[in-house]
Simulated assay, not measured.
Amino acid sequence: MGIHNLERMFQPESVAVIGANERKESIGAALMRNLIQGKYPGKIYPVNVEGEKMWGRQVFRSVADIQEPVDLAIIATPIDTVPQLVRECGQIQAGGAVLISAGGKEIGGKGKEIEAAIRREAETFGLRLIGPNCMGITCSQSALNASFASQMPHPGKTAFISQSGSMYTSILDISLREKIGFSYFVSLGSMLDVDFGDVIDYLGGVTDVSSILIYIEDLSRHRTFMSAARSVSRV
């Protein structure tokens, strides 16, 4: 699907956090805290089936209850709930979803079945997916920390794309310590949809990126990757 709807994911005007909560050590709490403390200027919608107020905001029982446009959904719930949540995001015409949830193909046959169900739901609605099993994404220009890494990188014009969550955090820690600026951090995880080629194509067309740093563990769409890399190298 190329760069379709990636602009809505990296430059969203609204973000729904599905699985938001206030439990101190939880990923749902970290995602909310990072968006708020990072001073993300858009609308933030916490989504939790319990539907109580949290983080000083109204909580919605589902994304359908928001009844406002949602550009980006961040899903941090058990992976067996994700196919239905992806369907709901597609039904409200969200731009895309970052799937923090782990437990997909890396655990074997059952996980592969769940990932296949997630892909089917996303393809039905044209919903873009980053992940599953990823750290999330950050974009300095839009003050977006849609990840569970606690800090944003210093502003810069380098983008970092990684499959590995541990490499994501390692490079982020080094960049903060050495005061090296980055415009984007992108954790791709299992690459169920959006992959290296898609992100390279997108980053090659934005003004706040002059170089792209990549950590690759495996490639599934070799030609797409090479085409994107050649295209960006000529920009």
Rank of each mutant, 00 (worst) to 15 (best):
R8G: 13
I79W: 04
I118Q: 06
T169I: 13
I180M: 08
L176W: 00
A159L: 00
H4L: 12
C139L: 00
I130G: 07
E22Y: 13
L6A: 12
D201H: 06
L172D: 03
A122L: 07
Q67I: 00
Q141T: 06
M1D: 13
Q58E: 15
K43V: 08
V232I: 13
I66E: 06
Q93G: 02
I161F: 04
G126Q: 03
D208S: 06
I92L: 11
S164C: 06
A122C: 07
N145E: 02
S190A: 15
H154C: 00
Q151T: 01
M1R: 13
G165A: 12
E25A: 15
K24R: 14
G2Q: 06
H154Y: 06
G204Q: 07
D218E: 13
I92V: 15
R33K: 15
Q84I: 04
I171C: 05
C134V: 09
A149T: 11
E68C: 01
A94E: 08
P12R: 12
V235G: 07
G165S: 08
L129S: 04
D218I: 08
I200C: 08
N34E: 03
G90C: 11
R221D: 15
V194K: 04
P41E: 03
K112F: 02
A143M: 02
A143N: 06
V47T: 14
R230T: 14
I130F: 04
P153Q: 01
A16T: 12
C89W: 05
M9Q: 11
S170Q: 09
Y184M: 01
S150H: 07
V82R: 05
S220K: 14
K24S: 14
S175M: 01
R119H: 03
M152V: 01
F60W: 14
C89R: 04
E217H: 09
G181Y: 00
I100L: 10
G197S: 10
V47Q: 12
Y168D: 02
G103I: 14
C89E: 07
K24L: 12
G181C: 02
L213R: 12
I18W: 09
S210M: 02
E115P: 01
A94D: 06
Q84L: 05
I161H: 08
G38E: 02
I130P: 04
A102V: 13
G111H: 10
D218V: 09
S210E: 14
G28Y: 12
E50L: 14
G42T: 10
E13P: 00
I174Y: 14
I114R: 07
D201N: 15
M32C: 13
D201A: 14
Q37L: 10
V86T: 10
R61G: 15
F10P: 03
H4S: 14
N48D: 12
Q84A: 14
D65S: 14
